[in-house]
Design a protein around this nucleic acid. Structure first.
Lengths: 197, 197
DNA sequence: TGCAACAGTTAACAAAAGATAATTAACGTT
DNA sequence: AACGTTAATTATCTTTTGTTAACTGTTGCA
């Protein structure tokens, strides 16, 4: 399931965990493959799944009343993914989680996981690190909506995560930025026309 | 420092904590008073303060390049407040934290606090609850920017936190919603003109 | 090869928001 | 009671975005 290179790699990712901790973590996980376009978590689902993406890319989206879908979040390699509705709020997921590429992930049951976390101080302090990182990301994204214009948000995304532009259609990036695909297209044109002074 | 009614009250707020836990928490705290308009944390500050607001209201803001200030967050009674730059990212605070009312808070040093948390499982699991709640709030706010129009965000704030409209000037609420005060004024007019059918 | 499906761009118009400035209103202070 | 300060509203104009629909380009598949 895990090659020796994998193990080296993940010891680097999960800083501070021992080999035993790592096994404990991955032992309660099952490998799951989702083809491009496939669904990982359905809207309305209630099971508390926690996934760790080994390869691929997943987007969370929601269909608005007027029919168009809005992307809320993107997750890719070596990131955890879960419906925060089910895991944090214990309510049916308001969003659908869809793979945009062929995706391989390690899936765990969050309920079972919590017990294991509570009995292993290193794992539970690692959970804290992850939580803080997620909180920090969410706050930063929040700030970008308050402090930046759509155009500035686009430029920020372009410089901070240039790689995702090769992996995700612009229309999804547009709604992620809080604007329509048409508007993103105009922003791109505007920028390309402005000589770089 | 804490009256018996206070103790009853806080045992309710900090669910799951014993009287001893509560004392341990409040014992490392100092009471701090900030007059309306006063500053709690300066922009650029690096000390890892964690405050628990007993009375009053604090806003985090930032002055943009063009000179106007933007409110990022509001916190009031029985909420924790901290600069996430200093506490999570160990970097100078990009924001200023200002009391909008005469405010009383319990101030703790986060570094010292972490040690105590680590040695008390109930406190540390309580920290987790708080972190999850904060993460959930941040995600929900993020979602509101992606899924709702400014007008819908205003109405959401109005129904979910009606009380803050009596405590915070509209201009701060406007920037909190990601719009200008002028625009908020227009939204309010638009709504008042629409018959409530 | 041809065609269906879909992403991206462009166009045209309506609606909303930003910027700036003037006006009104509320409040506290002298 | 008059004044100064500040928040909120209103007006005017510019810019941007939303909406809808047409058009272009690419890709994969029959």
């Amino acid at each position: 399931m895990l090659s020796t290179e994998d193990i080296q790699f993940y010891l680097g990712i999960f800083k501070g965990l021992s080999l035993g901790d790592l096994y404990e973590l991955f032992n309660m996980a099952q490998v799951k493959r989702i083809p491009a376009g496939g669904i990982y978590i359905e809207q309305g689902a209630t099971s508390k799944k926690l996934g760790f993406i080994r390869k691929g890319l997943i987007r969370a989206y929601r269909i608005k009343d007027n029919g168009d879908d809005v992307t809320l979040m993107l997750r890719w390699e070596n990131q955890f993914i879960a419906s925060h509705d089910t895991v944090i709020l214990s309510q049916p997921s308001r969003f659908t989680y869809q793979a945009l590429e062929d995706t391989t992930l390690m899936e765990m049951d969050y309920g079972r996981m919590e017990n294991i976390l509570d009995s292993n101080p290193k794992l539970s302090s690692y959970r804290n690190v992850i939580l803080l990182r997620m909180l920090s990301e969410a706050l930063e994204r929040m700030e970008s909506f308050v402090l930046l214009t759509p155009e500035e948000r686009y430029l920020q995304l372009l410089t901070e995560k240039p790689n995702i532009f090769n992996r995700v259609p612009n229309k999804h990036l547009a709604t992620l930025l809080g604007i329509t695909p048409v508007s993103l297209s105009r922003i791109r044109k505007r920028i390309s026309q402005t000589p770089k002074r």
